[in-house]
Nucleic acid binder design. Structure first.
Lengths: 120, 120
DNA sequence: TCTAATTATTACCTTTTGGTGGGTAGCGCA
DNA sequence: TGCGCTACCCACCAAAAGGTAATAATTAGA
């Protein structure tokens, strides 16, 4: 296997939390364990396919853990692993910075809005 | 113009620093003003097209500023704006977390390597 | 006159990412 | 019998992101 080379730390971080959905999922999971359907409702724009796909990748990176309850209908929930928790501070800052960014853009007259803030 | 709606702050942040290159560029610019060619050498994997494209987008978001010197051959350099500096802490943490992630994966036997660390 | 130097643009193509619509499992209940 | 519940998988398609290679512009200096 050819050695994979990173040139700077942030590359590795972005490989894990980058993409359209992962950081959003993680920001929700930061507050509580959530069931699949809960996550889907919390992120209304995401498709079911993307949701499970991204969760699988986060699981593979040891950021989230998946708990399956032997029930019918099925019940599955997701939470941050201990290692995933080490991202919590960063995730929070990413949320806060984004909120401020939206505020600025609104103040500048852009037609944008934010549905909910981090510290719900 | 239809109002653009964000559901959580991190969405806006990722729109700005997400993608394969932006966070890497910003991590370099965090330390010093850099010329185009310097950036290209610091990020050997990037193509010239991507470099200028991403810089234009960061400029449009008011994160970096571009200075053109009237010289031949041309001289252009880029630096963080004051607003861009407000990302500096986050960028640093993203680098540090990634370095730690790489260390862990190496310890676990993955064939990966890191060329340079944040605090050069 | 020809080339080096530096930044940037363009057209074209490939790869990656994301979306849609369908289907399955298996138990409970009308 | 047949439907609803929840999670999730697959095949297929569309869109976005990224890569390659060629080209421009301009002046100094060989």
């Amino acid at each position: 296997m050819p050695t994979k080379t990173y040139h700077i730390g942030v590359e590795a971080t972005m490989e894990i939390i980058g993409g359209k959905w992962k950081s959003i999922i993680l920001c929700h999971l930061r507050h509580h364990t959530m069931r699949t359907g809960e996550l889907a409702r919390a992120i209304p724009q995401i498709s079911q396919k993307m949701l499970t796909q991204q969760l699988r990748e986060l699981e593979a990176a040891n950021i989230v853990s998946r708990h399956v309850y032997k029930q019918v209908p099925p019940r599955v929930d997701y939470s941050l692993t201990d290692y995933g928790e080490s991202l919590s501070g960063i995730l929070h800052e990413l949320c806060v910075w984004g909120e401020d960014n939206i505020d600025r853009r609104q103040a500048a007259g852009e037609e944008i809005s934010l549905m909910s803030r981090d510290d719900v």
